[in-house]
Design a protein around this nucleic acid. Structure first.
Lengths: 117, 117
DNA sequence: TCAATATTTCAACTATTATCGAAATATGAA
DNA sequence: TTCATATTTCGATAATAGTTGAAATATTGA
């Protein structure tokens, strides 16, 4: 049981690390911000491309990474692909960081994040 | 003024991206968790090394990255270097993520993160 | 079917990052 | 000063990630 739980935790850590990594470049963090600002509809790739100033090809790679780590969803409407922020994943990531900093350890005060009440 | 403010934001985005990047590998995320668990004292490098299972050299590089992005502090005591989590930086990062997900946009509900009250 | 648009995929290149072991440095104790 | 320990730095290599432009694919409408 303990081993299984430890392994599960390891996998979670690995997954959160991958999510942080996906947010860990300026282009992708800007993409996420933009998609969040258009939440929950999201945006079509070409509009993101124009807004952020990335080539279609380059953007596509970044979106693939974000999609792979579960941070964005995509749906097709006609010839357009609509990309949107995955709120569930962001909630998990935020919850993880909150737990690490505020719950499991008391390094950061919840109030200080303007989180509370 | 507008340009200055936009630039400032760009720099902030870039900085947060770098912080996410620093958390974006499993070894470094585990290091941060470990240092948080020993907060606020922190731990000496060799104990982190043994706990995480990294060579002294490899660990030193990872700690350098975390230090460079402001996520850890270091102080010397005799021959030992004590590394500790930088709570201020973590608070800022948590605040940024919270603002993006919960304040600027309403993608994630604060309650859902178990943040509140 | 053909054309037009949106987007991805491919292939190549560049740049960055991670890892390793040996050597160098820093500190305190003998 | 010399030794022992802790840690970093160096130098090299391996691995991963970012960027680019061209070509391929998907979809819709004429």
């Amino acid at each position: 049981m303990k081993a299984a739980k430890a392994k599960e935790t390891d996998e979670q850590i690995s997954r959160y690390a991958d999510m942080f990594s996906a947010l860990g470049t300026e282009p992708r963090l800007r993409i996420m911000r933009l998609l969040l600002s258009a939440h929950p509809d999201g945006m079509i790739a070409s509009d993101v491309s124009r807004e952020i100033g990335l080539s279609a090809s380059n953007l596509s790679h970044h979106l693939e990474k974000l999609k792979h780590e579960g941070l964005v969803n995509v749906r097709r409407e006609g010839t357009f692909l609509w990309y949107s922020a995955n709120a569930d994943a962001l909630r998990e990531l935020l919850g993880f960081l909150y737990a690490e900093c505020c719950t499991r350890n008391k390094a950061v005060e919840p109030k200080a994040i303007a989180l509370c009440c």
